[in-house]
Computed example of a mutant assay.
Amino acid sequence: MKTDFGLVSIIMPSYNSSKYIAKTIDSIINQSYTNWELLITDDCSTDNTCEIIKEYTAYNQRIKLFTFLENKGAGVARNKSIKEAKGRYIAFCDSDDRWKPEKLEVQLRFMTENRVEICYSSYLKCN
């Protein structure tokens, strides 16, 4: 039986991310820990980023898209998603990142077992 640590709000800004964002979203959908919501704020992309995201929102209610009508920057986009977040935890994922399938579960278990309120992990570079 899997432990439910509470809802995780995953915060993702996007801007002209069509080349990477599908694989990024797939890596979140494939998490072993499934109690999450993905909040994507698009910062006025000029490519087909929003269309790709909308394909995911059509079949996965945990994914929500917010859009800006003018470019405001990644920080403002992150803050918009944080404002909409409903989770006990906040996790940040950029639109060109990918997560290993156990990322959330491992971090949540570590935080709970060690009674810590914040943690972060290293990363691997790929091309």
Rank of each mutant, 00 (worst) to 15 (best):
Ala22Val: 01
Asn114Cys: 04
Asn30Val: 03
Glu102Arg: 10
Ile90Asn: 15
Arg109Met: 06
Cys119Phe: 05
Ser45Phe: 06
Tyr20Thr: 11
Lys23Gln: 05
Phe5Val: 09
Tyr56Leu: 02
Met1Ala: 14
Ala77Ile: 00
Gly6Pro: 04
Glu117Phe: 12
Glu117His: 13
Thr41Arg: 01
Asp26Arg: 12
Leu65Gly: 08
Cys119His: 07
Ile28Cys: 08
Cys119Asn: 13
Tyr59Asp: 11
Leu69Arg: 15
Lys72Trp: 04
Cys93Asn: 09
Phe66Ser: 06
Phe110Ile: 01
Ser81Tyr: 01
Tyr33Thr: 04
Ile10Arg: 14
Lys83Ala: 14
Pro13Asp: 09
Ser121Phe: 09
Gln61Val: 08
Ala22Arg: 13
Lys83Cys: 06
Pro13Phe: 12
Asn16Pro: 03
Ile40His: 07
Ile10His: 12
Asp26Val: 00
Tyr33Arg: 01
Leu39Thr: 08
Val76Thr: 15
Leu108Val: 05
Tyr56Ala: 04
Glu105Pro: 02
Arg109Thr: 10
Ser95Arg: 01
Thr24Lys: 01
Asn60Asp: 15
Thr46Met: 08
Arg98Thr: 12
Trp36Gly: 06
Lys19Pro: 02
Ile118Thr: 14
Ser81Cys: 06
Leu39Gly: 11
Val76Leu: 14
Ile21Gln: 10
Tyr15Ile: 07
Lys83Asp: 12
Lys2Ile: 02
Lys23Pro: 00
Arg78Pro: 09
Met1Ile: 11
Lys125Gly: 06
Ser81Ile: 01
Lys23Arg: 06
Ser27Glu: 14
Tyr56Lys: 08
Glu113Ile: 06
Ser122Leu: 07
Glu102Ile: 09
Gly73Arg: 10
Glu117Asn: 15
Arg78Tyr: 09
Arg62Asn: 15
Ala91Val: 08
Ile11Gly: 00
Ser18Arg: 13
Trp99Glu: 08
Ser81Leu: 04
Phe92Leu: 15
Pro13Gln: 12
Ser18Gly: 02
Arg115Asn: 14
Gln31Glu: 14
Glu55Lys: 12
Ser45Asn: 04
Thr41Gly: 02
Lys80Tyr: 02
Asp47Trp: 11
Met12Cys: 15
Asn16Trp: 03
Arg62His: 11
Val116Phe: 05
Asn127Trp: 06
Tyr123Thr: 03
Lys64Ser: 10
Ser14Met: 00
Ile118His: 15
Asp96Ala: 07
Asp94Val: 10
Trp99Ile: 09
Ile25Cys: 03
Ser122Asn: 10
Phe92Ile: 13
Leu69Gln: 15
Pro101Arg: 12
Ser27Gly: 14
